[in-house]
């Protein structure tokens, strides 16, 4: 059996945990996010077992705990489609990731696609295309593109 470590990273409150919950087998409660800054769940894509590290969101007071990224085989960058700042912040977050673990297969989730006040356009996501990242408009609430997001990442990891 093949196992892969996946890290979900993004700003605070972009919906990383909700997105993860749509896809995984719950093992630990969410309180770990606030205590040690990460919560771990598992899921299967075909014969590959994903160990999904839902890393607590970044905000002005607490940076991402980059230690949790070590050894990751793939990264899901999550931003909130209703908050442009979270899209811009992806660049900074990516820098942190790259410095710590180097370039690894990455996909982007533009989350909360079910909400009406969507503020993302092609110009704002141009950076993602430059990086060669597949980008998915996702909705944790409706399950839109959630599975496709993880399948694409597993496919990239190879």
């Amino acid at each position: 059996m093949l196992k892969k470590k996946i890290c979900m990273v993004g700003d605070f409150s972009v919906g990383k945990t909700s997105l993860t919950q749509k896809f995984v087998n719950n093992v630990f409660s969410e309180k770990y996010l606030t205590t040690i800054g990460v919560k771990i769940d598992t899921a299967f894509i075909n014969d590959t077992k994903l160990i999904v590290w839902d890393v607590a969101g970044r905000d002005s007071l607490s940076p991402i705990n980059a230690s949790y990224l070590v050894g990751a085989n793939g990264i899901v960058l999550v931003c909130d489609g209703t908050r442009q700042s979270t899209v811009r912040d992806i660049k900074d977050i990516w820098q942190v990731v790259k410095e710590r673990i180097g370039e690894v297969p990455t996909v982007v989730a533009l989350n909360k696609a079910d909400l009406e006040d969507w503020h993302i356009d092609a110009e704002q996501t141009a950076y993602f295309e430059e990086q060669g990242w597949q980008t998915f408009e996702t909705s944790a609430k409706e399950g839109q593109n959630v599975k496709a997001l993880f399948e694409a990442l597993v496919s990239e990891i190879g």
């Binding site: 630990f28 770990y32 040690i36 800054g37 771990i40 160990i51 949790y68």
Partner: peptide, 20 residues
């Protein structure tokens, strides 16, 4: 039995957390 993968990952996370 527990989900050993999740438990192992959490050990590792706690290790990192305590260390950091």
């Amino acid at each position: 039995g527990l989900d050993g993968d999740a438990v192992s990952a959490m050990f590792s996370a706690i290790q990192s957390f305590v260390q950091d």
